[in-house]
């Protein structure tokens, strides 16, 4: 790996974070085969899931305001999100550092831990968007045919929503990672997070299909901001301003909780010695 040593004191703030984003990008670029394997798996599952949605839309044309191609597109867009949004959890490396006590080293750095981690995660997401996001979309386009956003306005809305989705996903995973600090075994939390994220993000099936109050509730939870909302922006099925506002709200709430959590672990590590 060509990870150059990062010397934060010598560089001003913005270049530092830009550099961290690049570092996160490059760090993941060394696992190119793993990423391509992930892209392959995501594509295969995209095809299998697409057939389920096709069968459903054959039985109920126009369901949820989607036509058949919308439904197929939905399926491949959400598969493309798995890597960048890290929908199966993890990707931060923090729990290992907390368990080993190395977190103390991270906390004494001159840059705040959360911003530092977010910058690296953004680099990771950017890399995986390219390597794990684009292939499933191409496969979907080739095998079934999918929609692409019409016009630059919708592209812009989608990319903004996608970026906000990455931040929300980071905010959630950061909180889960910090919980290790207070729990002896983090596997339980990881599984709960996995269940909530896969089911309530819309990754398995569009949230519009959830019956009654469950559907209404799922649509406003933070997980919807990761998958359902950006996908609806992609398809042009949602009011842009309202959707972005809801995503931004969740991003702010989760990042705010993360900041409080960081302060709490700093307190715990410094006062109680880990």
């Amino acid at each position: 790996m060509r990870n150059r040593a990062i010397t934060p004191r010598r560089c001003p703030t913005i270049p530092l974070y830009a550099r961290l984003v690049r570092y996160g990008f490059r760090k993941h670029a060394t696992y190119v085969w793993a990423a391509l394997a992930g892209a392959f798996t995501n594509s295969v599952f995209g095809i299998l899931r697409a057939y389920i949605l096709i069968a459903l839309w054959q039985a109920r044309p126009g369901l949820a305001g989607y036509d058949m191609t919308d439904a197929i597109t939905y399926c491949f867009v959400t598969q493309a999100f798995i890597g960048p949004m890290q929908l199966f959890g993890g990707g931060l490396g923090l729990p290992e550092r907390i368990r080993s006590g190395d977190i103390a080293l991270d906390l004494v750095r001159p840059a705040p831990l959360q911003a530092w981690t977010l910058a690296e995660d953004a680099g990771r997401a950017a890399y995986l968007f390219l390597v794990r996001g684009i292939p499933p979309m191409l496969v979907g386009a080739l095998v079934f045919g999918i929609h692409f956003p019409a016009g630059p306005g919708r592209w812009l809305a989608f990319l903004t929503g996608f970026a906000l989705g990455v931040v929300v996903s980071f905010g959630w995973r950061y909180l889960i990672a910090l919980s290790v600090c207070w729990l002896l075994d983090d596997r339980g939390v990881a599984v709960v997070s996995l269940v909530l994220t896969t089911f309530f993000s819309g990754m398995m099936i569009p949230l519009h299909l959830f019956p009654g109050w469950l559907g209404d509730l799922a649509a406003v939870l933070p997980w919807a901001a990761m998958v359902q909302l950006p996908t609806d922006l992609y398809l042009g099925k949602a009011a842009v301003a309202q959707t972005l506002a809801l995503q931004a709200l969740w991003a702010v709430i989760l990042i705010g909780l993360g900041t409080a959590g960081t302060r709490a672990i700093r307190h715990k590590v410094v006062i109680q010695g880990g």
């Binding site: 039985a59 996995l194 398995m204």
Partner: peptide
Amino acid sequence: TAAIDVAVILVIFANTTTL
């Protein structure tokens, strides 16, 4: 975790009677 797959089936059949 395993029950998520069943939940998906149930959601699908909340929208249709046959697949």
